[in-house]
């Protein structure tokens, strides 16, 4: 029995010591959130946005609809970002297509997004594509499923079909990808805070911390 209590005390002291050590080693500042990078090139179409145009900070996201990490970001982190940063007027969120050549249906998905966007329903399609991401894992042509998404969000399906058939936004999507390459996008999703590349772990908490830091710095 004595050995048991000695073990308990040892675990207690070890655990408490570890917590104190972790708390004392808390960095006063997070690692530099951004690496200087080229600002996205100017173009006629700058991507669909969420939030107020007068927001003090613009976060540009380069994303690939078939990328699982992009889907994970949208479903797990984005709800908090929308509430805490976009909804509060701190951030204007800009979405840029960056279809990776390694993904077979990324361009098709980007086209579906643009064709829905033509009808003012880009973000609805964006959410459909990311929240129902099983299509990306099946390996089958998801055209039919995207069409169902278009129906589900209340788009004019005939117009959507015509848009998809014409491929009229192929140039816009490629322009967006080239803009990303010029800005240094090397993986998706990739984020830029007012044109400065963010290379850390994209979590809503981190984004909130960075945005608040930038706003506080500008107020000084």
């Amino acid at each position: 029995m004595k050995g048991f209590y000695i073990l308990l005390v040892a675990v207690g002291i070890g655990g408490a010591g570890w917590l104190v050590y972790s708390a004392r080693n808390k960095p006063t500042e997070r690692p530099a959130p951004a690496t200087p990078a080229a600002a996205p090139a100017a173009g006629a179409f700058r991507g669909y946005t969420l939030g107020s145009d007068s927001a003090p900070i613009t976060i540009t996201e380069y994303s690939d609809f078939q990328c699982p990490y992009c889907a994970s970001f949208v479903t797990v982190q984005m709800p908090e970002v929308r509430t805490q940063l976009i909804g509060t007027g701190k951030v204007l969120w800009r979405f840029r297509d960056f279809p990776l050549p390694s993904h077979k249906y990324s361009n098709l998905a980007a086209m579906a997004g643009q064709c829905a966007g033509e009808q003012g329903k880009f973000w609805e399609m964006h959410d459909q594509i990311f929240y129902n991401h099983q299509w990306a894992e099946r390996g089958k042509n998801p055209s039919g499923q995207f069409r169902e998404f278009a129906k589900a969000i209340g788009a004019d399906v005939a117009r959507y079909d015509a848009c998809m058939d014409s491929q009229r936004y192929a140039g816009r999507i490629e322009e967006s990808r080239q803009e990303g390459i010029a800005a240094g996008v090397d993986a998706t999703p990739k984020f830029y805070f007012d044109g400065r590349r963010f290379d850390g772990m994209p979590t809503s908490d981190t984004f909130k911390h960075i945005v608040d830091s930038i706003i506080a710095t500008r107020k000084r």
Binding site: L19, N25, R30, V76, Q77, E80, M201
Partner: peptide, 26 residues
């Protein structure tokens, strides 16, 4: 929990998955 309260800076996690999980709505 202390990390969630902001009392511990960076989780010693290795993969970075801890931050993703901890920051998620779940």
């Amino acid at each position: 929990w202390l990390h969630k309260l902001g009392l511990i800076g960076v989780l010693q996690c290795g993969t970075g998955g801890c931050d993703t999980v901890q920051a998620s709505s779940y």
